[in-house]
C-alpha cells in the first residue's frame, strides 16, 4: 500500500473557515480507489463541510480536493463519475420516483431499458413503498425519500459515491439492506464509497477505513481490520 498511484481522492492543505473560525483543516488525506470510507464524528465535526467541499458546493478557503486528478473547483469532470445524496435538496419534489430515476439515469448515460432493469434489481430495497405509488416525491416520508436518493446515487455505476448520513431516518430493515448494498459494492472494488455517520456500529460494519473528525481535524484514521469495534467506541468516550 506504500506506493499506491490509484488514488481516488487527494486532499491537499484543505482549510475552510468562516471569518476567524476554522471549521475544517485537513493538511493531507488520500483515499484509494475502491475503498469504502466511513467518516465519523460528533455534531459540528466538519463531516458535511468536507462533503460539500468534495462536491464543490462550497469554496475552500485554502487548498483543494482533487478527484481522480481533477481539482473539483476547477473543472466539472468529476460530475461524470460521482453519485451523491445528502438530503432532500438532492430530490426534485414534484416528480414521481420513477421520473426522478429516469432523469438521473439519463444524465448518467443510461437508457430506458438500463434504468428499468436497474430499478428491478433494487426493487426490494424499497420494500414496495416507493415505486408505482402514484405520489410525488414531496409527499413521501423522509425515510422513503432517502431510499430514493440513495438508490439514485448509485445509478450508472459511478466510480465515487458520497452519502451524508444515509443511515439516519431509515427503518431497521432498510438499514440492513443498505449495509448489504454497500458491502456488495465493496466486493467489486470498483466504487469508492464515502459515508458519513453518527452511528459507529453501522459505519464500522461497512467500511474498510474509518476516519474520525473532531472540530474540523482528522483525529483518527484507521483500517477496520486493524481496530476492534470496542477500541473505536472507546475513542468517542469522554
Amino acid at each position: 500500500m506504500l506506493l499506491n498511484l490509484s488514488n481516488m481522492i487527494v486532499v491537499n492543505n484543505l482549510v475552510k473557515s468562516y471569518g476567524q473560525q476554522t471549521v475544517l483543516n485537513i493538511p493531507s488525506l488520500e483515499i484509494t480507489k475502491g475503498q469504502s470510507v466511513g467518516l465519523v464524528g460528533n455534531n459540528g465535526a466538519g463531516k458535511t463541510t468536507f462533503f460539500s467541499l468534495l462536491l464543490d458546493l462550497i469554496q475552500p478557503s485554502q487548498g483543494n480536493i482533487s478527484s481522480k486528478g481533477n481539482v473539483v473547483n476547477e473543472t466539472e469532470e468529476w460530475k461524470k463519475y460521482t453519485g451523491s445524496f445528502f438530503d432532500d435538496s438532492f430530490l426534485i419534489g414534484y416528480l414521481t420516483p420513477e421520473e426522478y430515476f429516469y432523469f438521473v439515469g439519463e444524465l448518467r448515460g443510461m437508457n430506458r431499458a438500463d434504468i428499468e432493469s436497474y430499478l428491478n434489481e433494487y426493487g426490494n430495497f424499497f420494500n414496495g413503498e416507493v415505486l408505482k405509488q402514484r405520489k410525488y416525491l414531496r409527499d413521501f416520508s423522509k425515510g422513503n425519500q432517502k431510499k430514493v436518493g440513495i438508490i439514485a446515487a448509485f445509478m450508472g455505476n459511478p466510480e465515487l459515491v458520497v452519502l451524508d448520513e444515509p443511515f439516519a431516518n431509515l427503518d431497521p430493515t432498510t438499514q440492513l439492506r443498505l449495509k448489504e448494498l454497500v458491502k456488495q459494492k465493496m466486493q467489486s472494488r470498483e466504487t469508492t464509497i464515502i459515508i458519513s455517520s453518527h452511528d459507529l456500529q453501522h459505519t464500522y460494519e461497512v467500511s474498510d477505513r474509518i476516519i474520525a473528525l473532531d472540530k474540523g481535524e482528522v483525529q483518527k484514521d484507521v483500517m477496520t481490520t486493524d481496530i476492534t469495534f470496542e477500541a473505536l467506541e472507546a475513542f468517542f468516550q469522554i
Partner: peptide
C-alpha cells in the same frame, strides 16, 4: 432553488 445542490452535482455541465 429547492434542489439546486442536485443540479450542481449531477452529470450536467453548467
Amino acid at each position: 432553488s429547492s434542489y439546486y445542490p442536485l443540479m450542481m452535482t449531477q452529470n450536467i455541465t453548467y
